[in-house]
Amino acid sequence: MKILLIEDEDDLRDVMKISLEKELFLIETASDFHTAAEKLETYDYDCILLDIMLPGGSGLTLLELLKEKGKHNSVIIISAKNSIDDKVRGLNLGADDYLTKPFHLAELTARVKSVIRRKQHDGQKIINIGNVKINLNERTVNVQSSALILNRKEFDILVYFASNKNRLINKTALAEHIWGDHADQSDDFEFIYSQIKNLRKKLKETDASIEIQAVYGIGYKLVVE
């Protein structure tokens, strides 16, 4: 899987690159409009991470360029501006998702995997992890051959963890991903514990080979046994 990371901020580009490389993606980077335009012209990517404000031009122009060339790459816009206008324009120009800075690395990974999955042509979107099979279209989970019944939030949490296998997940990142804007202001995100507790119990009961481990102070981590 090849990803083009277009971001002018060196430090941010570096951490994003390191984090995505941990997921075994092949990362190429561009730090300005012209380099990005050249690379887009020459190569094909499975996913493009696109900053809107770039030296030399707007990321939205790059999107238009892609559209003109008839390239159907998955694009995630990464912007410091949480502007509805930009969002709407970006999505209209063919972007698949929109991520506002600052974001959590786990969120970035989940989004990248999600847009890549969406572009795959195998019809059934399935994540296999250990002996657990997650069917994203039908929203069902099977451990070996038996079904694991999860409520909506438990399912979302499991998918998020599966997208960030072996990665440390900050509890705020998880709360924001599952509960969205309603998570802010809530003290300590303690309320996510009960959901996680249930999910862990269910995984254990069905002898799943994956485990959600609590990492002291910071959050959780999904490990495959």
Binding site: M16, P102, L105, N170, V215, G217
Partner: peptide
């Protein structure tokens, strides 16, 4: 937003490197 993003993300990466030292993790 950008420096915040860099700081948070760098710390997240750092936390992954430090996973065995609980005291450090709590600090991070």
């Amino acid at each position: 937003q950008t420096p915040l993003a860099i700081s948070i993300n760098k710390l997240e990466l750092l936390a992954e490197k430090q996973q065995h030292a609980e005291a450090n993790l709590a600090e991070i």
